[in-house]
Design a protein around this nucleic acid. Structure first.
Lengths: 254, 254
DNA sequence: ATGTCTTTGTGAACGCGTGCACAAAGATGG
DNA sequence: CCATCTTTGTGCACGCGTTCACAAAGACAT
């Protein structure tokens, strides 16, 4: 998922496939819910249903972690919660900085799902000086100037970028230079990072576009955009401004 | 990605692979940026670099759409923008409702990336009566009671769920019953939907957990959680409360 | 202790996605 | 008009991920 040079052979880390790692949080959530209801054990079938996956896939996923089930019975909920948490590294404290405290950054700061998983918001950082000191989610916003100091002092290795697209790469560079090695990017830009740095991106508009594709497909293709054939490729060295044939607004998202 | 019964054979829709569809928005963004800079044509190599993918992959992706390039020259930027937009269904207007106007919902309402892609926020809906009428991003919040009417009146087929986990399934059911056939789910829950309804989910904490996994891996595994072996599986019918061996807080995210 | 029954763990087959490498296509210059 | 050079479009092979189906393992009853 990293966008820079990172053409990782996918399943590298000790043999746990990347696809499995991506599902572990899903299992963990389902198991946590069961744990709260004091359910002692769960079968692969039940847990798979709760997590929304195939039971065979779930069993294979767990087999990568070790043989933690009991045949004829199922899996011990508490024990599995512990094992997955440990595998994901959630038994330790992960200080996280959020850069860019706009609407999204504020939402992230308030998001309960972080703190409950071992992630601690170490600092909120914004480039706007007028934001400095203003508390968001109980944490005072700090200015970008402090970025390097914060990361070094708190030993932050995970950074969240929630800035406008234009600022993302610059922020990314500074985070990486200061020692951050994992980045969660909400800005709609491709980030370049050196080897050894992981980038995951979440793009809200991309998800919607994918939905739109399937939605259009479901609506049937005859009523799409008229039966008329699309304008021909028209070989030309410069497309010139002979009328914008695409009615898509050419506006970059904020 | 759908979580309900939707075990779609992945690449089904007219032959465009799902993986390709997921990358089209990426290409579109890069192309839009080029278009703004009035770049007439672009080679697969350049565009691939801008989108952060392999150039062979990009060419193969485009080949599913048709032969839109010119050998020896590259692709006409404007024309490609039009073709991809059309394929994704972005040349038409997609009214979208956002349910759950908390921090995240408000952030989504303000997100510029929607409006610029043919997505129009038709309504903001929240269960809190005191929110009703309060404008968010220039749009007055409406009460959940209005949900069905709004969807029917505006012909909304895409819904965004940004509610707490507990309310998500109920909201989902109502959306689907009212005619919504595509759902973007930000609530940390697995949604059950009938066939024909697409669900995509975005889970902020899952992404962080995946990063934490790789981060832990990078930090080396010897200092992880002590050299002591983890507690044994301990076959027992009821795990009882013999001490919670997992130090993971059993708190569901908000 | 033995048999039955449930559920795990996994071998094997299959299909999708990726990337290489090259032939076909067309532009460009002489 | 022909040669050369660039860049597309794709056949092919490989590897990851998914799923089936079943044997091994253990619980539980008798």
């Amino acid at each position: 998922m990293a966008t820079g040079r990172a053409h990782r052979p996918a399943t590298r880390s000790r043999g746990i496939p990347e696809a499995t790692v991506a599902r572990l949080p899903l299992y963990l959530r389902a198991l946590t819910a069961l744990s709260e209801r004091s359910v002692p054990t769960v079968s692969s079938e039940e847990l798979a249903a709760a997590a929304g996956v195939n039971s065979a896939k779930l069993r294979k996923d767990f087999s990568y972690l070790g043989s933690y089930g009991t045949r004829g019975v199922g899996y011990d909920v508490e024990y599995l919660v512990y094992q997955i948490s440990r595998e994901l590294g959630l038994t330790q404290d992960w200080p996280v900085v959020i850069v860019g405290i706009g609407n999204l950054g504020a939402a992230l700061a308030n998001y309960g799902g972080f703190a409950s998983r071992g992630f601690r918001v170490a600092a909120l950082i914004d480039a706007d000086p007028s934001m400095a000191g203003k508390p968001v989610a109980g944490i005072p916003v700090q200015h970008t100037d402090e970025l390097e100091a914060i990361i070094r002092n708190d030993g932050v290795s995970i950074g969240v970028i929630a800035t406008p697209a234009g600022a993302a790469q610059q922020v990314c560079d500074r985070l990486v230079a200061a020692g951050v090695t994992s980045i969660l990017n909400f800005a709609p830009t491709v980030l370049s990072v050196p080897d050894g740095v992981d980038v995951r991106k979440v793009d809200l508009s991309i998800e919607l576009q994918i939905l739109a594709f399937h939605e259009q497909r479901k609506a049937g293709e005859e009523a799409t955009s008229g039966g008329a054939a699309p304008p021909p490729p028209a070989v030309r060295t410069r497309p010139a401004d002979d009328g914008p044939d695409g009615e898509v607004p050419a506006v970059m998202p904020a």
